[in-house]
Each structure stands twice: as structure tokens, then as C-alpha cells.
Amino acid sequence: MGVAVTRPKDFFIQLENLRHEAGVAARYVYAEMAIQHAASKSKKLLNRLNDTPTFWIACGAAFQSAAYIALGRMFDTTSRYNVEELLKTLEDNLHLFQPAALAERKRNGKAEDPDWLAEYLAEAYYPTLADVLRIRKKVDGHRAVYERAIKPVRHKYLAHREKQERSEVSALYAAGTVKEIWRLATFLLQLHDVLWQLLHNGRRPVFRAMRYSVKSIFDSSAQGSHAHESMVGEVKKLMALLETATPNPSIERTRPGKPGRASHVRRWAS
């Protein structure tokens, strides 16, 4: 049996998949939690949401399920596109990060080198297998959290209904915390940033701090450009519109009785 060979193209595909999936997971996680946070800050908004409780309960359940499934796509190792496959193609294609390849990307199709290129290449960082192993160690640490806190819910309740009793379902969700889910989602964003900067700019693979608390992002006067922050910003804008909107009297008169309250549904562990 021959040894599997990964092509340079495979790394670019895996990196693009990480960009996409990290954004998807972050948006699902932070959309639901930002709604909950907004409702906790304003009784008026909470009452508005409870005018249509079934809709918001459905939204919350959909966001939560999609978030767990999206995280699974990246941390499970049984598919073609996940973090483990990304690291394999990274290790097999370290030549993509060496001076000649970086120079080619910086030329951007031009025949002649720009004046600054030689100095840029001299100061750039070129990864070794030791860097891959260090990144892999970080991934393994986050995968351990996924295996404990996310995978059981995903496999035993969301994808397959092995648990049904409320106490059993609650126990599955209680294995993880909100903070851990935030950190899993933002780690994928960090990982993409690190690998993209290493590939395109020759920057040392350093995992820089990233805001992950929904409260700190929501209550800030400005949101950043990362997927989770921009999603919190959009939710904040939507909640402000709902809170200040003028109710339609005709809809108010025909509205059916409230089947429940949107505020009480939260599977996330605290």
C-alpha cells in the first residue's frame, strides 16, 4: 500500500474550509447568546420577545443545534475536512511557507521583485515541524474539550436521539460551560488567523488574545471584524429595533395567547 500524498492545493482547500466553518460556528454560537444577553438587559425587550415566544424558542434551538454540529465538523476526525486534516496538509506542505514560495505570493504575478521584497523575506518567519507540533498541541487541548462537552450532545441528542428524559439531556449539556463553547468557537477563528498570516505574510504563529465574552462584546461601543463580534453587533442592532418599534395595533388584537416565554429556554450550561 502506497503512502498517501497531499498536494499543495489540499492545504489551501483545508484552510479555506477552516475560514468558512470557523465563521459559521461563531455566528451560530454568538447569535443565540447575544439575544439572551440583550433580553437580560431590558425588561421591555424581553416583553417584546415574549410576544412571539414560539418563534424565539425555535430560533434559539436552531442556533444551538447548528453550533454544536458546526463545531463537530471541525473537531471530529472522520471526515475529509476538519482541523486534523488541515494539520496533516500543513505538515506535508511546509515548503509552501519557505522563502521561494512566500516571495512568489508577494510578487503577486509581477515579473520583477518589488524593492522591499529582499528585506521582507529576510525578516519573515519560516515554520518548521516544531511549529506544527506546537499548533497541534493547542488543537488537541481544544479537541479534548469538544470530546467532553460537545460531542456527547451532538451524537446522543442532536444528530441521534439516544437520550430523551429531561434529566439525561440536561446532564449532557451540563458537561460543558458557556465559556468553553465561546473559547472553542473563537479558537477556530484564531487558528485561521495564525495560519493565514503565516502563509501570506510570514508572521510567527502566535495565538493572540481575542475577545470571547458575549457581554464584553455586546456592551462595547464598537464590535470588531471577526465573525463572532460582527454577529453580536448585528444582533444588538436588531434587538434595538425590536425594542423601539411601534407595535401594530391590528396584530396586537389578533395575537393568540402566549404558549410560553422565550426567556426560559436555554440549553447552554452556565
Rank of each mutant, 00 (worst) to 15 (best):
Leu133Pro: 01
Asp131Val: 12
Arg154Ala: 14
Arg211Asn: 12
Arg204Asp: 14
Gln164Arg: 08
Arg183Gly: 05
Ile135His: 00
His226Ala: 09
Phe218Val: 06
Ser167Cys: 07
Ser213Asn: 08
His228Val: 02
Leu188Phe: 02
Arg203Lys: 14
Ile181Thr: 13
Ala209Phe: 14
Ser170Val: 06
Gly224Leu: 03
His155Tyr: 04
Arg161His: 13
Val214Cys: 01
Ala149Gly: 12
Ala159Ser: 12
Val178His: 10
Arg204His: 14
Ser170His: 08
Lys156Tyr: 11
Ala222Pro: 05
Ile181His: 05
Gln223Met: 06
Ala174Leu: 04
Thr177Gly: 09
Gly141Asp: 12
Met210Ser: 08
His160Asp: 00
Ser225Gly: 06
Leu189Gln: 12
Ser221Tyr: 07
Ser170Gln: 08
Lys138Asn: 15
Trp182Arg: 12
Lys138Gln: 14
Arg211Cys: 02
Arg203Cys: 11
Arg134Asp: 14
Leu191Tyr: 03
Ile181Ala: 05
Gln197Pro: 01
Leu172Met: 03
His226Pro: 01
Phe187Lys: 00
Leu158His: 07
Leu158Met: 10
Ala159Phe: 00
Arg136Asp: 12
Ile135Ala: 00
Arg136Phe: 12
Ala175Ser: 10
Arg211Thr: 08
Met210Leu: 11
Trp196Arg: 06
Val153Met: 06
Ala149Tyr: 07
Ile135Leu: 02
Gly176Asp: 01
His200Trp: 08
Trp196Glu: 10
Thr177Ile: 07
Gly141Cys: 06
Arg148Ser: 12
Gly141Lys: 09
Val139Lys: 01
Glu162Gly: 15
Glu168Lys: 09
Ser225Phe: 08
Ala149Arg: 05
Lys151Ser: 14
Leu199Pro: 00
Gln190Ala: 13
Arg161Met: 15
Val214Ile: 15
Val169Ile: 14
Lys215Gly: 06
Lys151Phe: 11
Tyr212Glu: 12
Arg148Thr: 15
Val206Ala: 04
Gly202Pro: 02
Val145Met: 09
His200Gln: 07
Tyr146Arg: 03
Leu195Asp: 01
Leu133Phe: 06
Gln223His: 11
His142Asn: 07
Gly176Asn: 03
Phe207Leu: 09
Gln197Leu: 10
Ile150Lys: 01
Arg134Pro: 08
Glu162Ile: 08
Phe218Tyr: 15
Tyr173Phe: 15
Phe218Ala: 00
Pro152Lys: 06
Ala175Met: 12
Ile181Asn: 03
Leu133Gly: 03
Asp140Arg: 10
Ile217His: 05
Phe187Gly: 01
His155Phe: 04
Leu199Lys: 01
Ala171Arg: 09
Glu165Thr: 11
Leu172Asp: 00
Ser225Gln: 06
His155Met: 09
Leu191Arg: 02
His200Gly: 05
Lys138Ser: 15
